[in-house]
């Protein structure tokens, strides 16, 4: 049976660390980094990339539009 696999790319320098994507992620893929970007924000990143299903919820709610989403069947 084909499995849906997704992946996200976060433009971490433009991320403002609001965490709205993290709470919208249904699989717990996203976490906030322990280090900051150049603006001083704890940016979002795919901490558990294997869990991503490519649903794009994170990108849809991101106020700054910093997330790009990919999805495929494996």
């Amino acid at each position: 049976m084909a499995k849906i696999r997704g992946s996200i790319v976060v433009d971490i320098e433009r991320c403002k660390g609001c965490e709205v994507c993290m709470v919208s992620c249904p699989t717990g893929t996203i976490a906030m980094a322990k280090e900051v970007n150049h603006k001083g924000y704890f940016y979002a990143f795919p901490a558990n990339p294997d869990l991503c299903i490519g649903c794009a919820n994170c990108a849809i709610v991101c106020p700054d539009g910093v997330i790009t989403v990919y999805k495929t069947k494996i």
Partner: peptide
């Protein structure tokens, strides 16, 4: 910028589902 962790095979133009307009 990406945090590619062995998922390079997913991040391909044909698999794109959401990108900023």
């Amino acid at each position: 910028m990406s945090q590619a962790t062995g998922i390079k095979e997913i991040i391909k133009p044909e698999n794109l589902v959401y990108k900023k307009t």
